[in-house]
């Protein structure tokens, strides 16, 4: 398969929309872009209908920078807030039915492995806490038990934001929500603990307070998923509408929650750790050789 996946056919470039022409000329494809370069290149994420000041959008935007090879990535999502932005990115996006994201990703990953033997294709599931921890729970768990080689990213806003603020399994105990008028009675689900038990190779818990760290974590998760096994990232992406956070305070809230209960935490399985240390050494060696 040619690397020039997004090039225009000869003579047709002028007839493409301006946004597409910009992607060809100054886009993020076929080269590594850093978070510190944001604003200096045309991003894969186009204009989208997410709410003003949404931390989830910020996280998704940083994910697009973190993917190790954007042109060979396929995203899988489902109903929820996140898909409103993900569907506006210049990366193939598969809209699974509610509940089957990880089943769809399983088939997709296996199919792509057969079709493109020499080219690693990254499949990344990016859905909300409702789509992964509640409704898609069985598919998520079983994809982990089967050790499917793709990344699952949970955009954890701790609420069903898209349908008007019902509590989800990931909502904190005691929170008053639309379907929990006296406060939610059960604890927040421990998805990271479940992931470790299910044998996930790499898990991370993160809040979007440090853009470079978000991009690096995503990159790490996708690269480990390529070689070792399933990876899981749980990201705090507050819902400023349902939790009534004024938009200028969104980052203050993210920092406060990170300090309180959402600190950056990553876990490697032994195999993943060995692979990652080895590949880090290799990268260092290549960098030295370049100099």
């Amino acid at each position: 398969m040619s690397l020039k996946t997004i090039q225009a056919a000869t003579g047709f470039k002028d007839y493409l929309p301006k946004e597409y022409q910009d992607l060809i000329d100054d886009g993020p494809f076929l080269q590594k872009r850093k978070v510190s370069e944001l604003g200096s290149f045309k991003e894969a994420l186009e204009e989208h209908p997410m709410c003003s000041g949404c931390a989830m959008t910020l996280f998704i935007r940083l994910c697009y920078v973190g993917f190790p090879s954007l042109e060979h990535t396929v995203l899988v999502g489902t109903a929820g807030c996140g898909r409103l932005a993900i569907s506006q990115g210049a990366v193939p996006f598969v809209y699974g039915n509610y509940g089957d994201t990880n089943a769809v990703a399983t088939g997709l990953k296996r199919g792509l492995e057969i079709r493109f033997k020499d080219q690693p294709k990254d499949v990344v599931v990016m859905a909300g806490d409702g789509g992964l921890a509640d409704i898609g729970f069985h598919a998520v768990m079983h994809s982990w038990f089967r050790k499917e080689k793709f990344t699952t990213v949970m955009l954890d806003n701790e609420v069903y934001g898209n349908t008007g603020g019902q509590d989800s399994g990931m909502t904190q105990k005691g929170m008053v929500m639309k379907m929990a008028p006296t406060g939610k009675k059960f604890e927040k689900m421990d998805m990271l603990g479940l992931a470790k038990t299910a044998g996930v190779a790499y898990t991370a818990r993160i809040a979007p307070t440090n853009p470079t760290r978000v991009a690096n974590t995503i990159r790490k998760a996708v690269l480990i998923a390529r070689e070792v096994g399933p990876t899981f990232i749980q990201a705090y992406t507050s819902c400023n509408i349902e939790y009534a956070i004024p938009t200028p305070k969104v980052m203050d809230d993210a920092r406060a929650v990170e300090k309180d209960r959402y600190s950056f935490e990553e876990y490697f399985s032994d195999e993943a750790k060995a692979y990652w240390d080895e590949s880090e050494k290799e990268r260092k060696r290549l960098r030295k050789a370049k100099k």
Binding site: M50, R61, L62, P211
Partner: peptide, 11 residues
């Protein structure tokens, strides 16, 4: 780096 919108704050 912190703007939630893509290509809104440019450099």
């Amino acid at each position: 780096q912190f703007c939630p919108e893509g290509n809104t704050i440019l450099y």
